[in-house]
Design a protein around this nucleic acid. Structure first.
Length: 591
RNA sequence: GGGGACGUAGUUCAGUUGGUUAGAACGCUGCCCUGUCACGGCAGAGGUCGCGAGUUCGAGUCUCGUCGUCCCCGCCA
């Protein structure tokens, strides 16, 4: 027979009991974490959100409570009445370890099936099992801590932006499909047969319209939806901090985000301080081989193409050659070097070359191709010291106006930085990346596409190149990067209808198509649009970094798998034929 | 769309060259135990080796397909 909660009122959290509570009568509630049955004496670790308290059931003193405690099993839900006493021997492992509760009465509020895995701090179950029984997984202290941290960060962000004069304004979830960019999640309309809403990839157009509407400063912590393939740092639905300001200089937006990040980092006691560094996109690519460089360590790239030039034919490489210096890696084994080459190849390298720098001199398989003098010169040029390994990778330019050798070397830099333990985990290196190109060549569509999105502003002096040399147009976009992770991007927007029309044209959108897709927005632009700009940050990634987690799934209460499945809710799922019928939808067999 | 890793008891895993009755730990069930705290002791239950074909006298093991989970490339304005 189960007991009722009745008029029982919890007096303390289990995990909050301290020596100062000794000799008090308390009522605790929670889950049976562990039971240690010694016969006449039963110990229960009782767990709630705050932690664990030890409860003692003594047959001699409280026979009735003891008898009921014999029936307890893992994850039963109970309320315990009792008295807090100091322990003769404290348990330093738990926060409440100086005291325990002598139970006078036990109320069994609910039973529990034997859980598929034990609720304990270390993960013992596979991620698949954890996601299927997410409600049990979330009972563990670490997910609890991550979800609490997420709340605290969100709360701090809201407070900060409120103080800075921003209004949190909601925008529609059921909106219009915009074929530019990611695939949309579509929602069929029952009322409008054959028509669909789309879930927003971002509130981009709405937030710009809010600026046109004179709201001046908007923000929103909001879900965005993108139907693309997933990764450790990507979910089909994810949470953004979206914000927009009217009449901003780029500097003003940076300052707002720097305040926000300072306060968010403050939640875990990290002293991040703006202004953050700035790095030009091209410079970031040249020095770090990435548009989201990890600045926690050096190991910058060196363009050694000229040094390799004499051997271009014999080595059969194409494109440029970039080198990095791996400190202390001259002693690496053949196996380690093979693994490195394997990694570089998988990153897109066409050729991988290593040069060992030792106190005796410089040795390399390249010696017969380049000669000893050239190798010595190379070691000097890249600043390699005895004990270092120079790793060079060649990759052919595949995309017009970009150098793929940089990206390959950039991936090697990260790989080596990790392998050689060069990354200081206590560092928090924020950097603004600016100076992006406005357009990138889309190989799939065989046309120029917006590097960010089609509302990104362009420098006035580049306007004339829109039609003649689109690749030379510089955008007013910027990215915020932390420790090699892209946290978000934004821009000063286009606020003139004529410029917006020219961008659509450069993207190969006819007037007609542009009107069809963005007509309402183009109209809005003509009614007195202020200069405006903003940014969107991926908050799941922010929390992941601050929580010290590897996967975004660890900071989301109910995440989906890499195939966009919710293992607990078992979504997506088939629906009742009557529902489909009402929507006028018929499912075709997949080819 | 492509590449890689994994799938065996409730859970996490081991399983030799294809060969007798598929093992361990934790968990679970019962009994004993008054100071445990990952309690301990004794006894016990628990298996569609993801699924489907194939090769073979014989498949957890080999082959093909398929499903699922994870990682990476493409993709993600």
């Amino acid at each position: 027979m189960l007991d009722t909660l009745g008029n029982l009122k919890r007096t303390h959290y289990c995990g909050a009991l301290r020596a100062t509570d000794a000799e008090q009568d308390v009522i605790l509630t929670g889950w049976v974490h562990r039971r240690r049955d010694l016969g006449q004496l039963i110990f229960i670790d009782l767990r709630d959100r705050a932690g664990i308290a030890q409860i003692v059931f003594n047959k001699e003193q409280h026979a009735e409570a003891h008898a009921k405690a014999e029936e307890l099993r893992a994850e039963f839900v109970v309320a315990v009445e009792g008295r807090v006493v100091r322990r003769q021997k404290a348990n330093p492992e738990i926060a409440s370890g100086e005291v325990e509760v002598i139970a006078t009465r036990l109320h069994v509020l609910n039973t529990a099936k034997t859980p598929p895995f034990q609720v304990e701090d270390e993960v013992t179950a596979s991620e698949e099992t954890r996601l299927r029984y997410r409600y049990l997984d979330l009972r563990r202290p670490r997910p609890h801590r991550n979800i609490e941290l997420r709340h605290k960060i969100f709360f701090e962000i809201r407070k900060t932006l409120d103080e800075l004069g921003f209004f949190e304004i909601e925008t529609p979830m059921l909106t219009r499909s915009t074929p530019e960019g990611a695939r949309d999640y579509l929602v069929p309309s029952r009322v409008h047969h054959g028509q669909f809403y789309a879930l927003p990839q971002s509130p981009q157009i709405f937030k710009q319209i809010l600026m046109i509407a004179g709201m001046d400063r908007y923000f929103q912590i909001v879900k965005c939806f993108r139907d693309e393939d997933l990764r450790a740092d990507r979910q089909p639905e994810f949470t953004q901090l979206d914000l927009e300001m009217s009449f901003p200089r780029q500097q003003d937006i940076f300052e707002v985000i720097e305040r926000v990040m300072e306060r968010a980092c403050g939640v875990i006691g990290v002293a991040a301080k703006g202004p953050f560094r700035h790095l030009d996109y091209k410079e970031a690519l040249r020095r770090y081989g990435s548009d989201k460089p990890d600045l926690r360590f050096g190991m910058e790239l060196h363009n050694v193409t000229p040094l390799f030039e004499p051997a271009r034919a014999t080595l059969h490489f194409e494109g440029n050659v970039q080198a990095v210096v791996a400190p202390g890696a001259a002693a690496w084994s053949r196996k380690q070097l093979d693994e490195l080459a394997e990694f570089a190849k998988s990153a897109g390298a066409r050729g991988v070359y290593t040069v060992k720098v030792t106190p005796e001199g410089v040795t390399s398989p390249l010696e017969k191709n380049l000669g000893a003098d050239a190798l010595k010169k190379m070691a000097e040029a890249v600043g390699a010291k005895p004990g270092d390994l120079i790793v060079a990778a060649a990759a052919k330019e595949q995309i017009p106006h970009s150098d793929t050798s940089l990206g390959v070397a950039g991936q090697m830099r990260l790989h080596l930085g990790d392998k050689l333990n060069l990354i200081d985990r206590g560092k928090w290196e924020f950097v603004w990346i600016t100076g992006f190109a406005l357009f990138e060549w889309s190989e799939t569509d065989k046309r120029w596409a917006s590097a960010q999105h089609p509302f990104t502003g362009v420098f006035e002096e580049d306007l004339d190149k829109l039609e003649t040399a689109p690749w030379e147009c510089r955008s007013k976009g910027y990215d915020l990067v932390l420790n090699g992770v892209e946290l978000g991007s934004g821009s000063i927007r286009i606020h003139r209808q004529d410029v917006q029309a020219r961008i659509f044209k450069a993207l190969g959108l006819s007037d007609e198509t542009a009107r069809q897709r963005f007509g309402f927005f183009l109209d809005a632009l003509t009614y007195g649009t202020p200069p405006h700009g903003g940014i969107a940050l991926g908050l799941d990634r922010v929390v992941t970094l601050l929580a010290g987690e590897k996967s975004i799934r660890e900071v989301i209460a109910f995440p989906k798998t890499t195939t966009a499945v919710d293992l607990m809710a078992e979504s997506p799922s088939e629906v009742d034929p009557a529902q489909l019928d009402e929507l006028g939808i018929q499912i075709r067999e997949k080819k």
